[in-house]
Design a protein around this nucleic acid. Structure first.
Lengths: 189, 189
DNA sequence: GTCTATAGCTCGATAGAC
DNA sequence: GTCTATCGAGCTATAGAC
């Protein structure tokens, strides 16, 4: 891995662990093994480096979701697979956590990829639910858009509750609760 | 409002807006109008002041929830009233947002009130759902504990999505999606 | 109780040698 | 490309006068 790549990876880790306000250029340098001059040669500064890191994390999050959504099985099975996918619940969502960072949200360049990622995710999931409704797999009364938003919110809130409790199990409970609620809208074949 | 109280209120605001790592004693002093010496006379330092602020915010959050839970109406009505209660969605949850703060979670004294608050909230809501099930208002298939966790997660995640989208409306959509899912488990009278 | 002064450190960035 | 030196500002806290 070259220096530029190591800088991006270290920044991704630090943004995940400490957020933007809690992350210093010095910490990035120490973790990546790059020197001061090296960092400022490859990137204009902290915001520039953070943007590269955020773009990378957002792209990865999107790719993983798409993999689950395009998997095999019924709509409900694919949604369940996405929700139950293995996650490091105690670390939180590397993208979602940045919405709590004042300096990230104050910078339109940094907040835009976050906004796009969640807009895409919610829309994609809503499309999947709409398809399940058309196929007769899901109740006609189920609203795809609000339901999709609620499901994504369960994941993001699950991280919050897991961290609050200091237990990844709480995340799993939130997911099972959501799937239990969803089960009431699945039509029996 | 005396100086000590102004310090606590200013700290609550800053923790809400910027989190613990993003909040400096200097900012607290400027917002509260208290001087350096004054702040360190009333509190031992930043962690001590933050603890007082967190305790206050957690207590308020608990009181508001309890008010909704003990209101009039069926269980579903009270749960809906709690979920739909007016909130400043774009500001996020003053307690939940602290779970993303590395320095808060690294300090057991600061994280304990957060853990207690969410444990209480989830348990209280689970008890309400259990009662609704006993009363025949809710489906017997609904698990109170996981459902309660999912509902609290929808709120916490709703804040995340609202901030990501820059729109309080997204929070409302998450709530309506959750209530729509819950509706499938309400027994018709 | 509140003030000012000061400490020692880190922040985010720039400069210029190699 | 990477290094070291340096900058001005802000950080969290302590000291001691009033």
């Amino acid at each position: 891995m070259d220096t530029r790549e190591r800088l991006i990876q270290s920044t991704r880790e630090l943004l995940w662990e400490r957020g933007y306000v809690g992350m210093s250029p010095k910490a990035i340098q120490e973790r990546s093994g790059a020197g001061q001059g090296s960092m400022y040669h490859h990137f204009r500064g902290k915001p520039d480096l953070a943007l590269a890191a955020i773009d990378r994390s957002a792209g990865e999050m999107r790719d993983r979701a798409e993999t689950a959504f395009t998997g095999s099985g019924t709509v409900i099975e694919r949604v369940a697979a996405y929700l139950r996918r293995e996650r490091d619940a105690l670390k939180g969502c590397p993208v979602g956590r940045l919405t709590q960072d004042p300096d990230v949200m104050a910078d339109p360049g940094l907040s835009a990829p976050i906004e796009r990622t969640f807009a895409w995710l919610t829309d994609r999931l809503a499309g999947l639910l709409a398809q399940g409704r058309e196929d007769g797999e899901l109740d006609a009364s189920l609203d795809p858009a609000t339901t999709a938003t609620a499901l994504v919110a369960v994941l993001q809130g699950g991280y919050v509750l897991a961290r609050a409790a200091g237990s990844a199990e709480v995340y799993a409970q939130a997911v099972e609760g959501a799937l239990g609620l969803l089960a009431g809208h699945v039509r029996q074949p």
